[in-house]
Design a binder for these strands. Structure first.
Length: 427
RNA sequence: GGAAAGGUAUCGAAGAGGUCAUAACGAGCCGCACUCGAAAUGCGGUUGUCGGGUAACCGGCACAUGGGUUCGAAUCCCAUCCUUUCCGCCA
């Protein structure tokens, strides 16, 4: 949610920044509606003040045996006017709120305009592995090793689902355990949230109303606001934990991580190149979230980027970090860096982590505040999130980058403690 | 799923159509006093939000949520949500 005051004060600047996201801002209507809203509120409040004044005198008048019928008659007319004004104000308020809630977040000043093509690679770690034998892709490797069962996954649930089996399940679990142990070491609090969330969570995270069709809905009430949905990322849960609360400034930054599967429709986004487990309807992810003081959210952001990168680096995988152009950041985010891992068979880098700073965009939507020690007043805090990490790309990258000539796969050293010391996955 | 009770500030809790909503009474927290220090005690402070105003300040709203009745609602009525207890179900 954007701050209407910021729009009021600097319409052109905000419009320019939003245009970098490819969003054509039209503020005149909202501003005009808000002006009307304030005018109506002013009128109604004057009437209410008048009513309150008279109401306060009535008990005394009654006690003194004075006639009140005439006053009641006038008050009734006044009441009708108030009801009318309240309705008008509510209508205007709803319109303003709705319009504001559909606008994307303002990108940070240093982001360049444009889409994916304008992303900037800011760091490359490791090198593309060279193989002195015919390289296999992860689908073939996993199928031959019997560690991922695509056929039976499809049998159970259709396209976009798979089963982890045996050493595959162990490897997946080891990855998650490795991530978890690293976050615990860094002092993040481990959260296991519900996987089914209410509409307000999707709204607060900034994913609704725009992306409400891209999640799986439970229940069948016609009114979506009464239904729950399967979370598309743990961010949707974590970022709403303190909605409507005022957090003591000394508690910031608050650092959390959660493990959940992520459920996504991914309608129409399947491409031939995305075979195997690159894009599924359900994948495992450990998600990090921080609640930060606005003045220190950049520090939190850098910490999250470093954490995500260090995980993939410790796994010994070749990857790069990209600073996303404004248009490639999601609607809710002011700034996003992607960690992208090298998938040898595809010859491209695929996102394994997206680290973002929402600034106060999500906090405004779900009303999460901290008490500022300087002013003593509540203020919106900043929320940040980053995958740490999603396994659905790490797994294929790992299988492919660590493959051996005989079709076996070496287990990265950091994962061995989580796999009972196993060093290699083979038939 | 059924029944009953309930939802008021940081917590406990009173108020049961108006003169008690910043909201009694307890407790907590923050000052200050007393003290060598602490405890105890005493005094003072301690909601959010919206509108107007440079400000001091003025005003509106908020008793789970949304409606209704009324000149006036925490209080009466309706719907929804949630909590607790009991019963049922229990892979």
């Amino acid at each position: 949610m954007l701050d209407l005051r910021r729009i009021q004060e600097n319409k052109e600047k905000v419009a320019e920044l939003l245009s970098r996201k490819g969003f054509v801002a039209e503020f005149d209507t909202v501003l005009e509606l808000d002006k009307q809203r304030r005018a109506v509120i002013g009128e109604v409040e004057t009437l209410k003040a008048q009513r309150n004044k008279v109401s306060a005198q009535i008990p005394a008048l009654k006690k003194a045996g004075q006639p009140v019928d005439e006053i009641f008659k006038e008050m009734r007319a006044l009441g009708d006017k108030i009801t009318e004004g309240d309705a008008k104000a509510k209508e205007l308020e709803d319109k303003v709120f709705d319009m504001l809630s559909r606008m994307p977040n303002i990108p940070d000043e240093d982001l360049v305009a444009g889409e994916k093509e304008a992303n900037e690679v800011i760091r490359v770690v490791g090198e593309k592995p060279q193989f002195d034998f015919p390289m296999q892709n992860h689908v073939d490797l996993c199928t031959k090793l019997g560690i991922i069962d695509y056929t039976r996954g499809t049998k159970l649930s259709g396209g976009g689902y798979w089963l982890y089996r045996g050493d595959g399940a162990r490897l997946e679990w080891a990855l998650l355990n490795f991530f978890i142990s690293e976050h615990l070491k860094d002092g993040y609090e481990f959260i296991l949230p519900p996987h089914q969330l209410g509409y307000n969570c999707g709204f607060g995270a900034g994913q609704f109303p725009k992306f409400a069709d891209e999640v799986y809905w439970l229940d069948c009430d016609e009114d979506r606001k009464k239904n729950r949905f399967m979370l598309p990322t743990a961010e949707t849960a974590l970022v709403n934990m303190y909605a409507g609360e005022i957090i003591d400034e000394s508690k910031l930054p608050m650092k959390f991580f959660a493990y959940t599967p992520c459920y996504r429709k991914e309608a129409g986004s399947y491409r031939a190149e995305e075979r195997g487990m690159i894009r599924g309807h359900q994948f495992n992810k450990v998600e990090m979230v921080q609640y930060a003081h606005p003045e220190r959210s950049m520090d939190a952001f850098n910490e999250l980027v470093d954490k995500a990168a260090s995980l993939i680096e410790k796994l010994g995988l070749h990857f790069r970090v990209s600073k996303l152009a404004a248009g490639d950041c999601s609607a809710s985010m002011a700034r996003t860096y992607d960690i992208e891992v090298w998938i040898p068979s595809m010859g491209i880098y695929k996102e394994v982590s997206s680290v973002s700073n929402a600034n106060d965009y999500q906090a405004r939507r779900n009303n999460t505040k901290y008490r500022d020690s300087k002013t003593g007043k509540p203020a919106f805090l900043h929320t940040l999130n980053g995958s740490g990490l999603a396994t659905s790309r790490v797994f294929p990258a790992l299988i492919e980058q660590y493959q051996n000539a005989d079709g076996s796969v070496t287990v990265p050293e950091v994962l061995r403690p989580f796999m009972g010391g196993q060093e290699v996955i083979k038939l």
